[in-house]
Amino acid sequence: MTAVGITTSGVSKRLGRTQALDGVSLEFAAGGLNGLIGPDGAGKTTLMRILAGLLRPDQGSVAFSAGGRKVPFAEVRPTMAYMPQRPSLYPDLSVAEHLEFFRDLYGLAPEVYAPRAAELLSVTRLEPFRDRRASQLSGGMYKKLGLMCCLLQSPTALLLDEPTNGVDPISRREFWDLLYRLASRRVLIVISTAYMDEAERCSKVHLLDDGRVLSSGEPAALLAAEGAAGFHELFLRRADARRP
């Protein structure tokens, strides 16, 4: 699998009156979990949408690479999967129907689809709920179905916008185990989260606050440099500093 990389340089985006992103320069590389960490309203979703090509930056640019070579977005797009933060599955379709819909969208051959769907259903433990409609799934199951639809085409880049938001702790752990497995296959994974404890599970974190990058690097090194015990502390300190 060709390793995909994304580099943003000076990306700014205004949404209405809010400056959602302000000069964001980041690098995302394959083979690890890239965490986009920040409180609500930090600009995580806006950045995700820009990476997925759903929004265009007002200023700055996004560059893509495949196997170390610079490539246009159109070349990465077909194997890029994006899971939006808000509910984006069809409430009236069942788990199996979702898989079939995305199978046909991606044009997967039956011999590719059958083993992969079976594997995903067993890993996510959604097999017993094949015929359940998305509207009747629990929060965790819903997110896992969303992830399954993304993974069906075995993407080279995976953009997950707050996939564990509102999911119970056990399901969250299962979710992360799934992601580790993918990361080891050299898939580029960008995951955003407002849960600070999840930041420590990433191989690289990018801290975002108020549309700006605070810092970016390995979680342990970052915390050591800041002299903080955890990411909660880091963000709380910042919030305090901003208070008059």
Binding site: L54, M80, A81, Y82, P87, S88, F102, L105, C149
Partner: peptide, 13 residues
């Protein structure tokens, strides 16, 4: 309205 549009336009279509 239901957000599925985001999934569809992000798909390689």
């Amino acid at each position: 309205e239901s957000g599925t549009f985001e999934t569809i336009i992000a798909a390689p279509l």
